[in-house]
Structure formats: structure tokens, C-alpha cells
Amino acid sequence: MNTTEEWLAAASIDPSVAELRPDYRALLITAEGLRPGPGDAFSEELLAEAEAKACDPEQHPHTAEWREAFRAFGAKPKRTRPSVDALLRRAAEGLPRVDRLTDIYNAISVAHVVPLGGEDLDRYVGPLRLTRAEGTEPFELMSGGEPVTENPRAGEAIWRDDAGVTVRRWNWRQCVRTRLTTETTRAVFVFDALSAMDDSALEAAGRALTDALRASSPGVTTTSRLLRA
């Protein structure tokens, strides 16, 4: 496997996505030396703070722009919501508790109103790239407790690697192959920003995540890269 820096340098955004949303930026942060496991007092505190301060997704300009972006490639955002929109709608009743790493990034996503996903770096096959789907790419998920492989719709915005789709509809749903687990020690986190979130706000969200990772996993090392459409 290439070094983390080389893998990060190979990440890309296809021109077809740039045509869809020229204002799009992706902040990629890799983290190595993570301490995985179930949720704990630290991740619980972050989630509770995020729940208490969660905004109304109907009133926030960034979630509004993401709904527009979904419509632009044919998705129905009321049926398949952008990830941060879906999380904000759950905040009043309680955000999901998954594992300590997932809980940390979900809390940052809600607090900064930015779609944010985390995936196991060791599960990747080749570089990460954002493109428009042909419709034949494999997307692995679980259905009824059994592994299932589906395909995205043609034209859908997808994150992928050499083995297939890692995230469908930009930031709607992750595949099971690269998702974080209680054994993940190397991860990549992807922040999705549109024009309502300027670079300084995006950088602040990135700092919040790296600060939280360093506090929860002493000795962790992080590397970042900002990609522009």
C-alpha cells in the first residue's frame, strides 16, 4: 500500500461533479493511531452538546444548498436526505449511538452543520474519488442481516475506489466494506462543503474533529487535504 500522503494526494473530484456544483469542496482528513471501541464518556459528551445546540435544518442555508445539490443529480432529498440534514432531524429525539469514532464525527457534523463521513482506510482499494455513476458500480450493504450488492443510478454523485462505491448520493449512505468498526485504527474523514460554508468555517470544522480525535486517541497523527471542484 502507498503511504497515507501518497494515497491522499491521489484523491480526486471528477470534472462532471465540478459541472454539477462548481462551489463544492472536500476536506479530507486521515487519522492513524486511533483508539476504537464502543461509545464512552467523551463521545457521549460531544453528542449531548451537539444535540443541545442543533439547528433547524429547514432554516440553515447549508442544508438548503445540499438539498438543491441532490435534486441536481435526480435524487429526492425528502426521501434520501443529505447526511447532515438527516442527523439534524434526529437530534431532538437523540442522535444515534454507534461507536466512539462514529459518534465523534457525527457530533462534529451536527455542531458545524456539514456532511461528514468516516471510513476505514485499511479497507480501501486504490484512491478515493468523487464522480458521477455509470450505474454498474457495485455498492455493498446489509439488508435483513444479509450482505447485498446494489448499483447506483446512472448520473448519481458517488464516492468510490477501485473496488466499487464507498458512498452513494454524495453523502447519503456508506457501504459496509469501508465503514468504521470497533477495530478501526486508520481512518479517512470526508467533509462536504458548498458555498454557504466558506473555507474558514470548513477549516474550523476540521480543527474540531482533529482536536476531538487527539483528545480521545492520544498519539494519533493526522494529515489533511482540501480538494476543490
Score class of each variant (00 low, 15 high):
L121T: 03
Y105L: 13
R168L: 07
E65C: 04
R81D: 06
T166D: 03
G145A: 09
V98S: 06
R79K: 15
E150W: 00
G144H: 05
V165D: 06
F73V: 02
A157I: 15
G74Y: 13
W170R: 07
F139E: 08
G135Y: 13
F73C: 10
K76I: 06
L116N: 08
N171G: 14
T166Y: 01
V167C: 14
N151C: 12
E156F: 02
G118K: 13
G164V: 08
P82F: 02
H62P: 03
A91V: 07
L128P: 03
W170Y: 11
P127R: 05
L121V: 06
E93P: 01
A75N: 12
P77G: 02
P61Y: 10
A69F: 15
V110F: 04
I158H: 12
P82V: 08
C175S: 15
A133C: 07
A133N: 08
E137I: 13
V176F: 05
G145L: 01
V113T: 15
A154E: 15
V84Q: 02
V165I: 15
G145V: 00
F70C: 11
G117V: 12
P77A: 02
R169Y: 03
E137S: 12
A92W: 04
I158Q: 08
P127V: 01
T102I: 10
L130C: 14
V167E: 12
A92R: 15
A69S: 14
Y124H: 15
E68P: 01
A163H: 13
T131I: 10
A107N: 05
L95C: 05
E119G: 11
P115T: 11
D120R: 10
V148I: 10
L128D: 07
A92S: 13
D103L: 07
P77R: 01
V84A: 00
E150H: 03
T166M: 14
R169K: 15
M142N: 11
L141F: 00
L95R: 07
L141K: 11
V165N: 09
P82H: 03
P82D: 03
V98C: 04
T63V: 14
K78D: 15
D162W: 13
A69Y: 10
G126E: 06
P138K: 08
P61D: 09
P152F: 11
P61A: 09
G117E: 08
V167W: 02
Q174A: 11
D162N: 14
N106G: 00
R100G: 00
